[in-house]
Design a protein around this nucleic acid. Structure first.
Lengths: 108, 108
DNA sequence: TTTTACTACCTTGCAATACAAAGTACCTGA
DNA sequence: TCAGGTACTTTGTATTGCAAGGTAGTAAAA
């Protein structure tokens, strides 16, 4: 059985958390986000990220503004809305609780 | 946006790890497993667990033996195969690495 | 001017899997 | 014999990550 698949499953659950964390730290556009995730060894591709960002925007977690680029097409820079801040905090709390119970469950 | 949904997503990734951990500690049958997960606040229902166990069995991660019950139908008691032990260790390692990178990514 | 390369955003179809709900079957005791 | 509880199983649905392909703006080479 391929362990890569299971790793993938675990990763899935935290993509949203990590994306929001990156945006919270710095207003970002998608390529930024992909690069930061990659640096953190959480590989995510465009086909994953764009629909996610759109979903979060449609649910008022994120907002964006267009920013001209010095070289190339304009970019959508995303930031958290106040509602998004609350949502992110809840997500982070859930993550911390999950790690606690899983670590406990897998002890010994 | 409903945070329960996001929690659910995070949980998904660790169900397999937790199920294997429970079985590793004690040869178990499905109701055992559901109860232990529930105690750890990782709620899982039959419709999730049975297909998961079957999948793991088909991939030689788990094996089972029928055990007569004192009151009711016989039970399938599951245990890890040697291959399953290896797989579990890999999964646990992946989990520990994931928590590390996510904690780093969400710091500050 | 036209073409090529690069960057950026977006969409479609597929696959994996958790869950709700319903179904089958066994065992026990009234 | 039948009612209730336990246990295992299956089916249909929804979510969501990914591969692959598409659209479009900018800039530099040909």
């Amino acid at each position: 059985m391929n362990i890569e698949n299971a790793k993938q499953q675990m990763k899935k659950g935290v993509i949203e958390l990590c994306v929001l964390s990156i945006i919270k730290n710095n207003e970002s556009y998608p390529s930024d986000i992909i690069n930061e995730l990659q640096a953190a060894k959480i590989i995510v591709v465009e086909g994953t990220l764009y629909p996610l960002l759109t979903r979060l925007k449609n649910n008022s977690i994120l907002s964006y503004r267009w920013v001209e680029s010095e070289s190339g097409p304009p970019r959508k820079y995303y930031s958290l809305t106040p509602e998004g801040e609350t949502y992110f905090n809840g997500l982070l709390e859930a993550w911390q609780e999950l790690t606690k119970v899983v670590n406990k469950a897998t002890k010994q």
